[in-house]
Nucleic acid binder design. Structure first.
Length: 216
DNA sequence: CGCCAGGGCCTCA
DNA sequence: TGAGGCCATGGC
């Protein structure tokens, strides 16, 4: 399976090109933005999350202190384009509060599993969001599993796992611990999932159509 | 117009 | 532990 996963990556990269999501190195302010983005894009298109981020930026609210100090209603109104804005306002506040006692520097020095466990205790941070933060903000080699990942690999290889952690083990046991690879692979999976391997798939334009086990 | 986005929480068996 | 309801705007 190791070779197949690497081959799939190579095909997706050739077909879609580099996605330049979040860069490997970034400053503290940038890390915060990445984490905010990870929360705002929950079950939401990145375009809508981006609008919410720009609203926060224009209001000088895209950093820890204002997120912590502004009224929750105010945050909610700024992030309206991202949807679920009341819930997400609360989540952003919870994350800003978490950072009061836990700096990015501290998190980066911890073992991954410990940092992950701490993030998972924060309201609004589930496994995918925690892993996105670990991978894209803290540059930890952890594979992000989302709805696209499950759908795509269920179809291509006709495999299925019960829960999130089993999906993650499937990838990391085959691919090792390569932060840059995981960064780009997940972005490519999203590109394939949203434009081609949709709920109603467009198999005719899929770069994996020769190797895919799904029949439609 | 209906479908669905780069999920997670809560409740209830 | 798993299924199901809920949250909500905007692009297509």
């Amino acid at each position: 399976m190791k070779n197949k996963l690497h081959e799939t990556y190579r095909i997706l990269l050739n077909n879609f090109g580099r996605q330049h999501w979040w860069p490997a190195k970034s400053k503290k302010e940038r890390k915060f933005e990445i984490c905010v983005g990870a929360i705002l894009t929950q079950n939401t298109s990145w375009k809508n999350a981006e609008k919410a981020i720009e609203n926060l930026r224009k209001a000088n609210a895209l950093s820890k202190e204002p997120i912590k100090n502004f009224p929750e209603k105010k945050i909610a109104s700024l992030i309206k384009p991202a949807g679920y804005y009341n819930q997400k306002a609360r989540k952003l506040k919870a994350f800003a509060g978490f950072l009061e006692k836990n700096s990015f520097e501290k998190l980066e020095k911890m073992p991954i599993s410990k940092a992950r466990g701490m993030l998972l205790k924060v309201h609004g941070i589930g496994r995918e969001t925690a892993d996105s933060m670990l991978l894209y903000a803290l540059n930890k080699p952890i594979f992000v599993v989302d709805a696209y990942t499950k759908r795509i690999f269920e179809r291509i290889f006709n495999i299925k796992f019960k829960d999130y952690d089993e999906w993650q083990d499937f990838f990391s046991s085959s691919l090792g611990r390569d932060t840059l690879l995981f960064n780009e692979y997940h972005a490519l999976i999203v590109a394939l999932g949203k434009d081609v391997c949709r709920n109603k798939p467009l198999c005719g334009k899929c770069p994996m159509q020769n190797r895919c086990n799904a029949k439609f």
